[in-house]
Design a protein around this nucleic acid. Sequence first.
DNA 1: CACAAGCTAGGACAGTTGTCCTAATTTGTC
DNA 2: GACAAATTAGGACAACTGTCCTAGCTTGTG
Lengths: 197, 197
Amino acid sequence: MPSATTRIRIVEKADTLFYEAGFDATSFSDIAAAVGISRGNFYHHFKTKDQILNAVIRFRLERTREMLANWENNAETARDRILSFIQILIVNRANIMAYGCPAGTLCTELAKMDHASQDHANEIFVLFRGWLTQQFMLLGSDEQAGQHALHVLAWSQGVASIATTFRDEAFIRREVAEITIWLDRKISQLNTRLTGD
Amino acid sequence: MPSATTRIRIVEKADTLFYEAGFDATSFSDIAAAVGISRGNFYHHFKTKDQILNAVIRFRLERTREMLANWENNAETARDRILSFIQILIVNRANIMAYGCPAGTLCTELAKMDHASQDHANEIFVLFRGWLTQQFMLLGSDEQAGQHALHVLAWSQGVASIATTFRDEAFIRREVAEITIWLDRKISQLNTRLTGD
DNA sequence: CACAAGCTAGGACAGTTGTCCTAATTTGTC
DNA sequence: GACAAATTAGGACAACTGTCCTAGCTTGTG
């Protein structure tokens, strides 16, 4: 089925271009050139540009779900799983310093456009948020788990944003180390609360 | 001099539109309609769209300098001055939840475009960074002052980003409270280090 | 009042955009 | 090998973009 292949290749290239150049700044011509097909051929796979956007978001959601599942399998403790999330900042540092966070920059752009797919794009953060909340609950946090999740999410977004502005790799590593310290302090607080009180 | 007035009105309206809709998404027509002048009239005041962008950035830099000067005059301690910076998140919460941080979102957009005015826009962050570094030095921090400045800058960016995604005002207030606690702990650490060691 | 300078409106311009149609080609199935 | 479906290329289309020109208008100064 070669058509499915073309469709997937369109989504993959659009995913990259939307990340590197932004959704609005990426044209059909750009995607067509990247995939190696003609502009007119698009209409057979996607009726509108928004349909491509939604396919890209669905693609990213699926990839995120797989990543979270991998962490569940490969990291023993909830602490290590949370750190797996934070380590993205270092693993993807080159792209982050050049283009920022893929999820954050897309959501920001769609918010400014007041685009219909805003909520769809936000689902990526909803996914991370829920998953992080779950990890903090496993660490013994209950009503504060959701707040800790948002805190970690915001911290990583802030590091990505400033890393893009100043292209400072050392800064990223320092902040990741600080988040690790913060996390371990939170864990020890939760442990003393559980055993001591 | 009515021309200077028109020029200023163009910059002011462009400033708002660039913030609310983004630089690339804002057209000459949009600005002309907002100012109430004809499209063709632009060429007399600005030869290119990039010239408007640079004028807007200069406008924002000037406004930021004034804001920092005001804090110098109105806040007694370095602690209060740093908190003045953080309080922007609450003061501008409505705009931040709708459009994000004006400086951060512009820098991110220009980075994706690989625009020539990237460094110019980044100067807003350079300004904040230098000013915050100065405040931390006044608090007794020396080699770590610059790192603390970047940390606060990143934290505020992260809060703005997540606040935009989830439109969560309570989250903003919680994080501002947490930054205050963090700052006061840093200050007491610096004081015990200075007197105790 | 006269004149020059500054300012303005309107439109021309080539290029690009997303969308959509049609005709030709490739593909899988009988 | 024949036929129908899926896939493709190429181009038409109106709308919009940033840029630029020109002719008329307003303004301040002599």
